[in-house]
Amino acid sequence: MKTIAYSSPFVPAEWIAAHGMSPSWLQPRPAAGRPLVGASRGVCPYAGALVDAVLSGVEAAGAVMTTACDQMRYAAAIMEHRGQLPVFLMNVPSTWETAAARGLYRDELRRLGRFLVRLGGKEPSPEELAEVMLEGWLGQSERSEHAPVRRVGQAQRSPTKTGRIMVGGTALRLSHPTTPPPPQQKLVPLALVGGPLVEKDSDLFEMVERAGGCVVLDATEGGERTLPAPFDPERARSDPLDELVNAYFGAIPDVFRRPNGRLYEWLGERIAARGVRGILFRRYLWCDLWHAELPRLRQWSPVPVLDFDAVGEEDGATSRTVGRLEAFLEMLR
């Protein structure tokens, strides 16, 4: 089965799977040796790492990127311009309140479908699509009430020899934790808010615990925040494509959406429900969209906010991160 790499939660894994292909969440880490693009001033480290990863070679038939931000848009252009891998740039509208925006997203799904067919996929019938959506695309129908709140994809991480693609989409549909497991005693419950994480960032959760905290709300990209809404079985059977649009485009809150107030509604509900006492705000240097939200988040937040700006996987990051975390937890205890 051919693999399709994708890097945005607005790309429905079910859609790829229904075309008979294997969706694979692309979580980059910088290529060995000199980065091709990634280290340039002004380049978002995540976008740069994605470009480096794709240009260095990924084991996939194609890659799907989205227009969620300028950096990703331009990254996709560089991948196409300089690389060999077929790349599909999916236009995910920033506006979301109009029927036209919804219609554009739906049309983009269809267009993505045609791309997948060109790569060897097969267009699914509505019934086939509904089955994949409702039964899970790896045949798993169990939903865990108490799924771990860790990184989506971590549970089934199986890197290839290049280490650049993680076959981890299963976890996307495993759970919608409404009641996360209670944190260990004395650990301060925290929320992790931000955009996408690179592979090494999985260490962050352990660092938080060593410093005395526990992430009870993962609101990063690829975490709980970007899980699609549960599919309505009736709607999924009557118009599965429309239900995909509802669950993804209609439901996922994100910083690039205009307006983006729903992000705060989503956060507010869960911060209150889970007793979160502090927010860890994780952003990349040169990421304008998340960076611009920081002061608003600080003003809005009912709990203190710790800002982490990162350039990716540089060696000095760990001690800096640990220092900030410790200071933050000292403050909260």
Partner: peptide, 11 residues
Amino acid sequence: GAVADFVMNDR
């Protein structure tokens, strides 16, 4: 006198 909030530039 307790710390309410802090911002760091250590980069």
